[in-house]
Amino acid sequence: MLHDFTLGPETGLRATLIIAGLGLLLILIELTVTSPPFLGPSGPVPWDVVRLQARCTAKDSPTSRLLDRLFSEPRWWLIPACSFAAALVAASVIGGSGLYVARIAAIPVSIILGLLGVRSFYGLDGAYHMMLVIFGSVALTAFVPGPVGPQLAAGSIAVNACIAYLVSGVAKLASPVWRNGQAIRGILSTRSYGHPAAYRMVLSFNGLDLTLCWTVMIFEVAFVVAAFIGGLPLVVFLGIGVAFHLSIAAAMGLNGFLFAFTATFPCVLWSSSLLDGILAR
């Protein structure tokens, strides 16, 4: 399998679901244990105010009354959500029909992610959106029979991962503060996403901020190129990607991104080998 750097769609999807499932479990447990509960009435985003953002939730209706009940105690749905995420990971690990069970489990997981977005987008980040892409792709193809279902899901995840990195890289390349190196220095100077030691290091070494900015931009834009090249270069590139997200988790506290984005890598590996096969013909 990996000795020729290819991965079957089912193996790729299993690996993606295990990594994403573990990441989702982490996020859900983090949300459940915050004190006061982040999504509770005493938290920073109480439902009685957040609901005013949309007409459909602001006005009195059967839907809004149902949401009121559901969101009055977040643990009512966060704890079952953790169970679904755990079941999905377990099913993905088991051989045979486990993947089919995991694909079905992606449906309630996607619904819960949707509920989370309705409850409050304040506080959610790109890791949430990538989780939505992963589990949404799997959920939408859950009942597609045969090998086509996993292939569609894996392909969708891979394409969206490439788009994510490409858009991120191009947006940075278009920004003067990224091109001149100021961006990373500025981000590291914040307490929210920065790191005092990393900030001091960037100030101490001349040109380090510029190097880091261009490294990030080139990595992100090159992601889709690496996916087309495939083989060993892609495997090495994805290894660099894991290190990239690990360093972001360490420096910026974005631990959710580590799981959400690296989870897409097995699907990218499979899609690349599929593309290789198509082009070889």
Partner: peptide, 27 residues
């Protein structure tokens, strides 16, 4: 202070306070 919790070294693995921090920025 609860709206912008301090960062800690463990955040790389376990970071429940990131939601409050991000929510404050978003708001």
């Amino acid at each position: 202070i609860a709206m912008t919790p301090q960062r800690r070294p463990i955040d790389v693995l376990w970071n429940p306070s990131k939601f409050s921090r991000k929510a404050t920025i978003d708001i």
